[in-house]
Design a protein around this nucleic acid. Structure first.
Lengths: 143, 143
DNA sequence: ATAAAACCTGTGACCTACTCATAGGTCAAA
DNA sequence: TTTGACCTATGAGTAGGTCACAGGTTTTAT
């Protein structure tokens, strides 16, 4: 398979295939005649695996570690379980933060309906946001 | 106020103050004696406004547009309302996707408890992820 | 046979929203 | 006066790709 064929088969951008190849997730052979990369069914499996893992929230580095461990015939699964647990916790925290945010946004929208737009006078840049009450400490910043 | 004073007053990193200044969100005057930037109360208001808007999901570009419009004595609020509605929709979509993801992660974790780790044999890189059932079409990609 | 379209290559820039590092200048307190 | 804390500008780094560029190759149509 050539780049675009592999990309199409996995439903990704050909540049993503090239990127993953540069990053060492895919290991195609090279055709010395034309210098093209040649991918086989194994690469397709790796690519699909990588996309699934990315959907699950694994980072590219983690995906590469898993693939590398698999190449060395070590079982990556204990590591996968660990990272996966961590990712699940992250997702749940993120959901909580977004729900907080949604709540605040909705209450702000409600409050804003009664407010005029107003032309900024150098003191009230935009009342809508200035009067936003910021009590919730759900920030990413301080982690 | 000097950089660190402003940063402390707003609870941000001094580098963020410098960054916002470079990006045109803050417009300090310069002390010709020592080449230091001088920020006033107006800058503090702008900075606080910017942080609030960022927390609400506005991009830096949008924040700058709002500030620029305010500087030109146009009311930015209709724009703010528009972008805000859009952001709320984004947040709600994102929450939905994450809840889907959490559901899938939890069911995968349950299924994995019964599965052995297994050493990869070149065909099953990691059963845990390969056997992940990927039916949910909640992707960011195709938007 | 040949010309155009569609592919391939590597490299590097771009995106967000900062944060950090570097090298050198300035200022306040001990 | 020296030390430490601050200031300056600039550039690089982060994640995960995506896109652009310039040039080589293969396929398809005429």
């Amino acid at each position: 398979m050539k780049v675009k064929e592999l990309a199409t088969a996995a439903g990704v951008n050909p540049d993503t295939v090239r990127f993953y190849t540069r990053e060492g997730l895919l290991k195609p052979t090279r055709n010395p005649d034309n210098n093209y990369q040649h991918y086989d069914a194994e690469d397709l499996r790796r690519l699909r695996f990588a996309r699934k893992a990315r959907q699950l929230g694994f980072s590219l580095v983690e995906v590469r570690q898993i693939l590398d461990q698999a190449d060395d015939h070590h079982s990556p699964c204990p590591m996968v379980r660990d990272v996966f647990q961590q990712r699940l916790a992250d997702v749940e925290r993120e959901i909580g933060e977004l729900q907080q945010l949604r709540k605040r946004m909705k209450s702000a929208l409600g409050a804003w309906e009664d407010m005029p737009d107003g032309t900024p006078d150098g003191r009230t840049i935009c009342r809508l946001i200035e009067h936003w009450d910021d009590k919730a400490p759900a920030k990413h910043v301080e982690e």
